[in-house]
Simulated scan of single mutants.
Amino acid sequence: MKTFWLPLFTLLIITGCSSENNESPGDNPNTEPMYFPENNSTNWEATTMTSLGWNQDNVEPLLTFLNEKHTKSFIILVNGRIVMENYFDGHSAVSPWYWASAGKTLTAATVGIAQQEGYISINNKASDYLGNGWTSAPIAKENLITCRHLLTMTSGLDDSKGDNVLPANLQYLADAGTRWAYSNVYVKLQDVVANATQRTWNNYFDSALKNKIGMTGAWAVTGTDLSVYSSNTRSMSRFGLLMLNEGKWNEEQIINTAYWKEMTSTSQNINKSYGYLWWLNGKENYHLPQTQQQFNGSIIPPAPNDMYMALGKNDQKIYVIPSRKMVVIRMGNAADGENFALSGFDAQLWQKINAVIN
């Protein structure tokens, strides 16, 4: 297991953080200016736990827990600066790893950019961009499904048919907007963007989002027509930082603030804890993947109520916490058993994080 948290000179040598960090002890993360790493650079400014007033005695138990739970990589940013960067099990800063469903949020962000550039409207029916017959539903029912329904998991299509998004597998179950069900039909939004822009999804995504914030990585299509993103952990951190700064990277507003707010707010009345492909903490109730049962309370009670999350199969995590100016990234194998997005690991991890940051 490699650790990159203290001392600072070790962090600078091992992780390639910039030697020009001018942080002073006692800096308040809520008043300190946001930092953005340069594109095409391995330099990334760091800040110390001492300056943040964190409890360093509880770092080792956190790292031990992460290692025991099959973690590959872990990063905490505060105001864009690295506080912790840790790799395990032979993983490194340049190793790619799959995002799984955490990558849904990349699709949500890119859809927002396509809308602000005038290519689409999320209020239009998906058939406007995909043509008729993209599902097996009767045409009248298919035409009820808007792009917003795909963003909010309320298409009404049968979620029990697996990952395949070919028309034969997209079958009518309920009218759009009347049922929340976690499924991969959202990936049709990538076809919406490709058809509307007359570019490939990869090409538009790269120019509209990936290249602007200096991400690496690529989409790969699986045998079920599902598009899965993989990148190194710092690229995932860059996207988390963009979201923390309300869609703005340095001086460029990449995702307009109105759409950013919609993405990270309750998007419908069925699952209060879901935005546009983002999970939301601190709400009055939530639904889990593969069930129609409603659970009361916050998804992750130990975590901050204002946190929003990109969650992927087998515990791929982006946690964004505006009140702490913080982004937390976890990549790796399933902490315990295989899971679709949420698991008991989230609450356990936040208990360990809280012991460090509070």
Rank of each mutant, 00 (worst) to 15 (best):
L52D: 00
W350S: 04
K69R: 15
L52M: 12
A46G: 10
Y87N: 09
E251A: 13
Q190H: 00
Y87E: 10
T197M: 10
M34D: 06
N123D: 15
I14V: 08
K212Q: 15
T154W: 07
S18I: 09
V78M: 05
N305Y: 03
L166M: 08
H91S: 15
L226C: 12
T50E: 15
L8A: 10
Q351D: 14
V94T: 15
S207N: 13
A196C: 08
S207I: 09
V187I: 02
P302Y: 07
A208W: 06
G133H: 10
S237K: 11
Q115S: 08
L106E: 01
G332Q: 09
A168T: 05
A100H: 13
S227G: 03
Q190W: 01
D89N: 14
L244R: 10
V187N: 00
R330H: 02
Q171N: 09
V328N: 06
F340Q: 13
P7N: 10
L244G: 01
L12P: 01
L77F: 09
V192P: 05
V320W: 06
T197E: 10
Y274F: 15
K125E: 03
M309E: 03
W44F: 13
K2W: 07
S19I: 15
S343V: 12
V94S: 15
G332C: 12
D128R: 12
N39Y: 00
N358D: 15
L241C: 02
G118L: 12
T178N: 07
M1T: 06
F340C: 00
I122M: 09
I82Q: 10
S160K: 13
Y274Q: 08
N58I: 03
T154F: 11
D306R: 09
G118C: 11
V328T: 01
T264N: 10
W54A: 03
L311K: 04
K212P: 05
D206Y: 14
G80S: 08
N55S: 11
T71H: 07
L342F: 14
I75Y: 06
T222R: 11
K325A: 04
K69Y: 04
D159L: 00
A126E: 02
N184T: 14
N123T: 09
S265H: 12
